[in-house]
């Protein structure tokens, strides 16, 4: 069976990637929210594995992670949620994003095996840089889990080429130095553009860009150079007031449609694989 991520990349679609903290803001919200995001145009979803001490995340994801942990979103629960999402019809690639300590506590090999079985397609682990990841990557390869390594604005050309060679299908560029959710001001500044062009010049695989991307204007700007864009903190802010799973799904749908229903969608070629709500979206 072809890898879900490989198939998506082969289609040459731009990647429109929401980051969702599971079981946020309420328990039971994960699967309805994932379905709503898929229906409204997300073609790859980054699902968090909440950690008490998320070093690369800003205040929004920190706070959401605390809520999620209180709502029972342990690593084993997140893997169950992926399985439930697959059963409920989530067909887009799902990439798990989280920190290495919960994975070590769970057992790295056990985690990789069960993540693959549950239907997850890849992993982003921001505190597992290539220096510490070589054995882990070999085991992830064995389980056909795509490893997505990060490229930072301070990475030089050699480092970018190194990371590009290690990432299984695509890499993840941090748009600007800092943690997630920081408003960067403006669609894209010159430094960011220069950085993304430098990444393009030094990569053979595709790359998405994330951190601080909050609205359609920014998404559009990033997609002119990058192969995809990730929006996380702004989505979590949009759903944080929900008091039920249904409301979470509806707020997530409204947020993502608004993001897609803009000039950004004009860039997406071929059109998004819209599922049930295609008519309304078009």
């Amino acid at each position: 069976m072809p890898h879900r991520i490989a198939s998506l990349l082969a289609s040459n679609e731009k990647l429109l990637v929401p980051y969702l903290t599971p079981e946020f803001p309420v328990a039971g919200a994960t699967v309805p929210a994932l379905l709503a995001l898929q229906e409204s145009g997300a073609n790859l979803i980054e699902l968090g594995m909440p950690h008490s001490d998320p070093l690369a995340d800003g205040t929004v994801i920190q706070a959401a992670s605390q809520v999620a942990i209180k709502n029972g979103a342990s690593l084993s629960r997140v893997l169950e949620l992926v399985r439930e999402a697959r059963a409920a019809g989530v067909g887009v690639p799902v990439v798990l994003m989280g920190y290495i300590n919960p994975i070590l506590a769970y057992g790295a090999e056990k985690f990789l095996a069960e993540a693959a079985l549950s239907g997850a397609d890849g992993l982003i682990i921001p505190d597992l840089p290539p220096e510490e990841a070589l054995n882990f990557k070999a085991r992830a390869d064995h389980h056909r889990l795509s490893m997505i390594f990060l490229i930072s604005p301070v990475s030089d050309a050699a480092r970018i080429r190194f990371i590009d060679s290690l990432s299984t299908h695509f890499s993840y560029c941090i748009s600007t130095n800092g943690v997630t959710g920081r408003a960067t001001g403006g669609a894209m500044n010159e430094n960011q553009l220069a950085f993304l062009l430098r990444v393009r010049a030094n990569t053979q695989k595709k790359f998405v860009v994330g951190f601080g991307i909050r609205d359609a204007v920014q998404v559009k700007a990033m997609l002119e150079t990058a192969d995809g864009a990730v929006v996380g903190s702004a989505l979590l802010e949009a759903i944080e007031a929900a008091t039920s799973p249904e409301q979470t799904a509806s707020l997530a749908r409204a947020f993502w449609r608004n993001l897609m229903d803009s000039e950004a969608s004009a860039l997406i070629n071929p059109p998004l694989p819209i599922k049930p709500n295609a008519v309304k979206f078009a």
């Binding site: 070093l55 690369a56 290495i100 921001p126 505190d127 597992l128 840089p129 220096e131 510490e132 390594f149 990060l150 490229i151 930072s152 604005p153 301070v154 990475s155 030089d156 480092r159 990371i163 941090i174 130095n177 800092g178």
Partner: peptide, 12 residues
């Protein structure tokens, strides 16, 4: 020990 840090800090 080691360097379990986000990519941005690898250079630092």
């Amino acid at each position: 020990g080691g360097k379990f840090v986000p990519e941005t800090l690898i250079k630092n």
